[in-house]
């Protein structure tokens, strides 16, 4: 109030602007409460960016890393490069309040520089499991000021996975779990098979398949090893997103041994979007799982999309 008195004494002509200024000052505390939520976000993780968009925060993103490919609109945003090789000044040029990323984000000296420059850093785990997802969504919801929406998204994700599980249990009564091999394709090179410690293995198991490999990470398999494993289903990834048939032919040309596996004989080569395998569980995972399950158990009628609660 003391301030008001001082402004009034400034004189009649200045009174208008002075009052306007006062009014603006009076609004500041209220405005600040909204500003407490970070407004300009940079996301350094594919599935994290996807969740931000799914929770309605796309307009806050001012930059994303090279793994943020979905939805396609994110590719229009400035790219901050690869998540493990971030550049402090480049990110600061985007004037972010918040940098989101997984534990793989780095290098550490750059993160320190960003922190020193007043950028808030939030590390969400890229682990592929539901407990991690719950934690991540809760934190994203709080950061967006939309805790309710985050809870709903998590519940929907959960119930879709549960419906999927029930469907698989049903399907397994009439058909044994198929042995599955996931091959990470590199056009022209030999395909790498996913080991049991990968996100790919998580997807396979969740979709009701048995992952056949025992090595760690992604390793090239010899033709003989491929024949010995004799998978019922082979999942292959193709970044060029060719027509599935064309991609299948290309895969068989590159790995002739594959043609004599049961999977190829019975025509069970399934295409998968490789971006599902990177950076933890994204919002597109339930859909991907449903597609895989349908391919694993062709005799059972696939789970109709309607029965899965959309949101």
């Amino acid at each position: 109030m003391g301030v008001t008195n001082v402004s009034v004494s400034i004189g009649r002509r200045r009174l208008g602007p002075a009052l306007a200024l006062l009014a603006a000052l009076a609004w500041l505390p209220g405005a600040r409460a909204d500003d407490a939520l970070p407004q300009r976000w940079v996301s350094a993780g594919g599935s994290i960016s996807e969740w931000v968009v799914a929770l309605g925060g796309e307009d806050r993103l001012v930059g994303v890393d090279t793994t943020s490919l979905h939805p396609a609109s994110l590719q229009e945003l400035p790219s901050i490069g690869y998540q493990r090789q971030l550049a402090a000044e480049g990110i600061l040029a985007l004037r972010p309040d918040l940098l989101l990323g997984s534990e793989e984000m780095g290098p550490p000296p750059v993160l320190e520089q960003l922190r020193a420059a007043g950028v808030r850093l939030e590390t969400l785990s890229a682990q592929a499991d539901l407990a991690t997802l719950e934690d991540n969504l809760t934190r994203l919801g709080a950061l967006l000021g939309e805790p309710q929406r985050a809870r709903q998204a998590l519940a929907a994700f959960r119930s879709r996975l549960e419906a999927q599980e029930a469907w698989i249990a049903q399907a397994q009564r009439s058909q044994e779990a198929p042995g599955v091999l996931l091959l990470l394709g590199h056009p022209g090179g030999s395909a790498m098979a996913a080991g049991p410690d990968t996100a790919a293995a998580w997807l396979i198991e969740r979709a009701g398949g048995r992952n056949l490999t025992t090595h760690s990470g992604y390793k090239a398999l010899s033709s003989e090893a491929l024949l010995a494993l004799d998978p019922d289903v082979v999942i292959f990834t193709d970044r060029r997103l060719l027509e599935a048939d064309e991609a299948r032919q290309a895969l068989l040309r590159q790995n002739p041994a594959l043609a004599s596996t049961r999977a190829a004989r019975e025509g069970r080569l399934v295409a998968l979007d490789p971006t599902l395998l990177v950076g933890g569980l994204g919002p597109r995972v339930p859909e991907g799982l449903a597609a895989l399950s349908a391919a694993f158990y062709p005799a059972s009628s696939p789970l109709p999309a309607e029965t899965t609660p959309a949101r």
Binding site: Q85, E104, V110, E112, Q113, Y218
Partner: peptide
């Protein structure tokens, strides 16, 4: 390189290309 997992492989690759980024 053969023993590395995906993340360490990328680190190794980038290290081999050099960078002045993150100097302190």
């Amino acid at each position: 390189t053969y023993l590395a997992d995906d993340a360490t492989l990328r680190t190794l690759t980038f290290w081999n290309l050099g960078s002045l980024n993150g100097a302190s």
